[in-house]
């Protein structure tokens, strides 16, 4: 076989494998009612709820628009961080990751499919948030769609890295949901996902100031509420990048494919 023929023979199954694995991931996600509810639907419900509570202006813009931006942030952390971490821990502790390693599915194909599948869920959720906002509260769609999508992908990547890092330190499938929500919910409150934080005590705001979700929401606010390009927030991008790299490095050193020995 010529080098070209070998390359084609290798490449075609790789693309087929990726498509197969992505379909499988989507099937597994949507078939699990608990995951579909808590990861996909919950931020939408919160938006409907909070949107009917707040009125007037937040940060100088109509309250529903500011809430929408905050809930895109919460949705990102909920899907890419919490959802991914819980799924990975359950799969590892149930032996699914170990089981897959004995098949011809390359680990890289597995990881990329899972990340893209997670991104699909987050993007669908964001579209649903905007449709609900438009229908109930008259919020506009983003003016600069390119910058907005770029911000979503950056956020999803950073929180996915933190999700895999967190999955590496959680020891049991039973405890995974509790541990992850113990991180996620306070972070969402302290960083303004559910409404403005300027009336919080200074020390709570100080904690919020180091958390990555604060900077993702800042990015979304800048792009969505003020129509700026995503690159106009270099400080926020730098903090997000630092968290993302920290998550990746931690994952690289600590992630295990195998369950804890029984």
């Amino acid at each position: 076989m010529s080098a070209e023929a070998i390359r084609l023979a290798v490449r075609r199954p790789a693309r087929r494998l990726f498509a197969h694995q992505l379909r499988s991931e989507q099937l597994v996600f949507w078939r699990s009612r608990e995951a579909a509810f808590f990861i996909f639907l919950f931020p939408l419900l919160l938006f409907v709820l909070l949107g009917s509570v707040y009125s007037g202006k937040i940060y100088g813009v109509p309250a529903p628009e500011a809430l929408l931006a905050g809930l895109v942030g919460y949705g990102c952390a909920n899907t890419a961080f919490a959802g991914l971490a819980i799924q990975l821990v359950i799969r590892r502790e149930n032996g699914i990751l170990k089981r897959l390693r004995s098949t011809p599915l390359p680990p890289a194909t597995y990881v990329v499919s899972l990340l893209i599948s997670t991104l699909i869920v987050f993007v669908l959720q964001t579209v649903a948030l905007f449709v609900i906002g438009r229908a109930f509260y008259g919020t506009p769609f983003p003016s600069d769609v390119g910058s907005f999508v770029a911000a979503l992908v950056i956020g999803a990547a950073v929180f996915a890295a933190l999700g895999t890092a967190t999955a590496s330190v959680i020891r049991s499938a039973e405890g995974s949901s509790a541990v992850v929500n113990f991180i996620l919910l306070p972070m969402a409150f302290l960083t303004g996902s559910f409404g403005p934080t300027h009336r919080y005590p200074a020390f709570l705001r100080a904690i919020g100031d180091v958390l990555p979700l604060k900077y993702f929401i800042k990015l979304v606010n800048s792009v969505y509420l003020h129509g700026h390009g995503f690159w106009t927030q270099p400080g926020a991008l730098a903090v997000l990048g630092a968290w993302g790299v920290a998550g990746l490095v931690f994952t690289a050193f600590k992630f295990r494919w195998e369950p804890r020995e029984g």
Binding site: L17, S24, L27, R31, R99
Partner: peptide, 20 residues
């Protein structure tokens, strides 16, 4: 010891692995 995806059917689970 391994557990697979609880909400998939027996056939779907086999199809996923067959695809590898």
């Amino acid at each position: 010891q391994s557990q697979l995806w609880p909400n998939l059917t027996v056939r779907e689970t086999h199809r996923i692995f067959a695809g590898y």
